[in-house]
Design a protein around this nucleic acid. Structure first.
Length: 540
RNA sequence: GGGCCCGUGGCUUAGCCAGGACAAAGCGACGGCCUUCUAAGCCGUAGAUCGCGGGUUCAAAUCCCGCCGGGUCCGCCA
């Protein structure tokens, strides 16, 4: 709805409209600084320019009043806007959605199957999964991929570890990590095993049936555990693709063939492509085998033929690699992915490392947070307590990672992770259940009357109208944190309303009016939490 | 050494791309609010040379240049 208001503001401004200069404002529903810009160009005073613009325009559509303060031109929505917003929210169960079209592929998480997901992978997973949810809401036909790096050295080491040490009966991904960590230690002591690792990689790429079987088995065991964790985190992937498939299906060879035909490859034993201002890239080893980037180009070729928009969620350590990949794709004339880079999650003692066994697993984090939540919940039957604790714990974890802009480095602090601040998922969940509680007790249909709105109610409704606007912003900017923050602001405004304006005890007429508002808030919070992959509890 | 990212009250962050209205929140501190719809809530007070130094501009947290601190990348690894 807010998007419609924005359009009407543009229409109102006519020739003065500049979408980049129209912003949300604390002083109005929308505000523009276009007068400052014109004043500068024509060497006039902003206030005067604003006033003369005001004299030349007529409010259109949802725009009620227009005013100027200093050089600003402020727009306020009319009653119809408020009524239509509430009407739309109450009648459209998909409220918040848009009608954007197109096939989008989002690749995320893609952790190496050499151990369990750790908290860094969780950051990747919740960013990727939330983007996928929001893209779907925006109307796109979304497919999510987990790209399994099965051809790496770390997989060969894992296979070696299983051979030498077997697997314990821990959760499968944790058992795999033990084998991987032990093998790494062994490898440090016995350098001669290095040959074995190399050989495993070589045989795997060549497709030796025995070795392929061993790799597949190890990876499937690890992935079983990883999938279990992802499921708990409400993270889903539509497809799991194996890196090696792109060697086996011939796409790697055809990519190399194409580049060769384009005469961009320097053959110096190995096959190398030189890139302007970037480090050169080796695409084929001297021994004839492919490299990670070669397979990745093939994977992107495959994706680009099937999807209109490609989004990858990658750790910031892949930035240079991402530039190289994009450049090579450009040379080949293949669609270039949009890459969301997120900075590292480190521990107070430094960087995490699966190889050294220095990490906090997602499973451990979930359990610790859940335990802490259980302390807060009282007087419940066991089954309900479990449900609430799980939902609140997962919500807290997802939100913690989601609310910070991807480019910010994070230092993980368990104390903070288990501390439920006001700015967290549980605050929104709690607010949602408060709204549910009122609706449960009221049982009334509700009837919104725009003219009845006080300041807080009006602000609240305008805020509710912004949900599609924020969905659009996330789709445009690929920053899920702005939606998290939006939902928080809705919850906060509702709590203000909750304190000051009783619903059930209000006089007739006002009561129905407020019930409608509560219902609208409940719907927005419910739909919004869904977009963040957080369960909207009706009771807490 | 070079590239990229981060640096905002004691702590965690939003705002920076598209410069403008008193720098916005949470935690922590202090002081209040539960015979009234769930206090996992709400209100108030104190607390910021927006890393530092220049520059551009009527106007800079935001743009430009130079520093400083932290992270990260610079494999015929993935």
């Amino acid at each position: 709805m807010f998007l419609l208001l924005l359009e009407d503001v543009m229409k109102t401004l006519k020739g003065f409209a500049d979408p980049r200069l129209i912003r949300e404002s604390e002083h109005a529903d929308l505000s523009t600084t276009v007068a400052f810009k014109i004043a500068k160009e024509k060497n006039l005073k902003p206030e005067e320019v604003a006033k003369s613009i005001l004299e030349n325009i007529e409010p259109k559509g949802y725009v009620g009043t227009v005013e100027t303060v200093g050089g600003y031109i402020n727009f306020f929505a009319n009653y119809d806007f408020l009524s239509d917003t509430v009407e739309e929210i109450l009648s459209n169960s998909n409220y918040g959605g848009l009608n954007l079209k197109g096939k989008v592929l989002i690749e995320h998480t893609s952790a190496n199957p050499d151990g369990p997901l750790h908290i860094g992978h969780v950051r990747n997973a919740v960013i990727g999964d939330t983007l996928a949810r929001i893209f779907r809401k925006a109307g796109f036909d979304v497919t999510t991929h987990y790209y399994i790096n099965d051809m790496g050295r770390q997989m060969a080491i894992t296979v070696l570890g299983i051979e030498k040490f077997g697997l314990s009966n821990k959760k499968p991904d944790h058992a795999i990590a033990e084998a991987y960590i032990s093998a790494n230690k062994l490898l440090e002591e016995k350098k001669e095993l290095e040959k074995e690792v190399e050989n495993l990689m070589l045989e795997y790429e060549r497709g030796s049936e025995e070795i392929v079987g061993k790799f597949r088995k190890a990876i499937e065991i690890a992935m079983d555990g990883i999938k279990e964790t992802l499921k708990r985190l409400n993270v889903s992937h539509d497809e799991f693709l194996w890196e090696s498939d792109f060697v086996r299906n011939g796409l790697v060879d055809s990519v190399l063939g194409e580049l060769d035909a384009m005469k961009v490859i320097k053959k110096d034993g190995a096959w190398i492509v030189e890139l302007k201002d970037l480090k050169e890239v080796v695409l084929r080893r001297e021994n004839g085998t492919s490299l990670y980037i070669t397979r990745d180009i093939a994977y992107h070729l495959w994706k680009s033929e099937r999807f209109e928009r490609l989004v990858n969620v990658w750790g910031a350590d892949h930035k240079l690699y991402g530039e190289q990949l994009k450049r090579l794709l450009e040379i080949l004339g293949i669609k270039v992915p949009e890459i969301v880079f997120f900075e590292f999650v480190s521990l107070p003692e430094g960087r995490m490392s699966t190889r050294r066994g220095r990490f906090i697993s997602a499973d451990e984090l979930i359990e610790k947070v859940k335990e802490e939540v259980k302390k807060l919940v009282s007087n419940r039957e066991i089954s309900e307590l479990e449900e609430i604790a799980e939902a609140v714990a997962i919500g807290a974890i997802r939100f913690d990672f989601l609310k910070v802009a991807p480019e910010k480095p994070m230092v993980f602090d368990m104390k903070k992770a288990i501390d439920f601040e006001r700015q967290t998922a549980s605050y929104i969940q709690y607010t949602h259940s408060r709204a549910c509680s009122i609706l449960r007790k009221s049982g009334e249909e509700g009837k919104f009357i725009a003219e009845f709105c006080n300041k807080v109610e009006r602000d609240l409704v305008v805020l509710l109208s912004k949900m599609p606007f924020y969905v659009k912003r996330v789709v445009d900017e690929l920053k899920p944190n702005i939606f998290a923050e939006y939902l928080l602001s809705v919850a906060s405004k509702f709590n203000e309303f909750y304190r000051d304006y009783p619903v059930l005890k209000a006089e007739e007429g006002v009561r129905e009016h407020r019930v409608a508002i509560v219902k609208a808030v409940r719907n927005v919070l419910r739909n919004g939490l869904e977009l963040l992959g957080i369960k909207a509890l009706e009771r807490m």
